[in-house]
Write a protein that binds this DNA or RNA. Structure first.
Lengths: 197, 197
DNA sequence: GTCTATACAAAGATAGAC
DNA sequence: GTCTATCTTTGTATAGAC
């Protein structure tokens, strides 16, 4: 056997790669079909529309990002390093996949002013995951009241790292600088908590 | 007289507004023409291509952003506040113009994988301006050796603020959080400089 | 400089056979 | 489930007149 991936998987691969490399709106359906070596009818039979395909590809990518991130958290020895593991995960995630210009989720969000319900929810799921997990991890380090605030700041810094990649900064350079800033933010928050009476 | 703006200006206005509100690639030329109340031939006579029009619109917008930022720097009383004035300028800039989904320059960069030479240069000019001016201002506060590093970190945080807007955070909320993080980064850099022997 | 009308290419999506 | 062939709409850009 050792058959090659199904047409459905090839479509998801092609859509994800092209969306990551050059964006959705500049990628015609034809380009996805050619890369996946699949006919138009097959795409529409499986996914209904181009946006449907993109949505499914993003869902799969988000699940993989989630897995990578969780692995990095488990590997981190201390609560503080678990909180900062999001930067390790970012670097690992990006080195593992097809090179992308920056963040695929933010990229699709930026070029889709009126997404359908499913796509909109998938895009929001990325932000939700970031905020939710960082808040959980933050709660092990600072006062519960302050955890949401710290989480939002870390998402801001993480998002800044992604933006710097779009501006042309090397991934590892941007990640290192983001991690540094995040470390300071973290210590400031933890310090103010523990020093308060 | 009090004649209305020329067709060229109306085209620039329309292109800038639509690029800011919904992005370039989803905005057909027809939509720009309709908003500007101008015929196709006029657009191509002035700007050659759609990308030429977008490029000129971005150049004008960058010049206005530059002016706003400089005003905020002049108004700031201390060197530290001058360095943080980029956040004041961001808020002021965005409230003064047509509502945009996030940063027009990063938005166009994100959806244009292969820009022409002029557009590419215009997009890069935004990042150059940020780095260059922040480095100048940083040099008044920290060791000259450290100024570029501090400037890069501030650009990262500033870019993070923009990204948070794309994620759905309110502009003023994101700006305030960015400013807070930037203030800490700044104090850490200034502190390490002055405390070193 | 600006208009009307239109050329030409490319897009997303579907029909019908196998 | 997958293919070939095609339909329809929309996109950018131009021709030629005023």
């Amino acid at each position: 056997m050792t058959s090659q991936p199904t047409a459905r998987d090839r479509l998801l691969d092609a859509a994800e790669d092209l969306a990551a490399m050059q964006g959705v709106s500049v990628t015609p359906v034809d380009a996805i079909l050619e890369r996946a070596r699949v006919s138009p009818a097959t795409l529409y039979a499986h996914f209904g529309t181009k946006e449907g395909l993109i949505t499914q590809a993003l869902r799969r990518r988000l699940a993989r990002w989630d897995t990578t991130w969780q692995e990095c958290i488990e590997e981190a020895p201390t609560p503080e390093e678990k909180l900062l593991a999001v930067f390790t995960a970012l670097s690992r995630h990006r080195h593992a996949l097809t090179p992308s210009r920056w963040c695929v989720f933010l990229g699709v969000a930026a070029e889709t002013p009126h997404p359908g319900r499913d796509l909109e929810d998938t895009l929001a799921a990325d932000t939700r995951l970031l905020l939710h997990r960082l808040e959980e991890l933050a709660a092990t380090l600072v006062d519960t009241q302050q955890a949401p605030l710290l989480a939002r700041r870390l998402v801001l810094i993480y998002t800044g790292v992604l933006g710097m990649i779009l501006r042309g900064t090397d991934v590892d350079t941007a990640t290192a600088e983001g991690r540094h800033i995040a470390g300071m933010t973290l210590h400031a928050a933890a310090g103010s908590t523990s020093s308060a009476p």
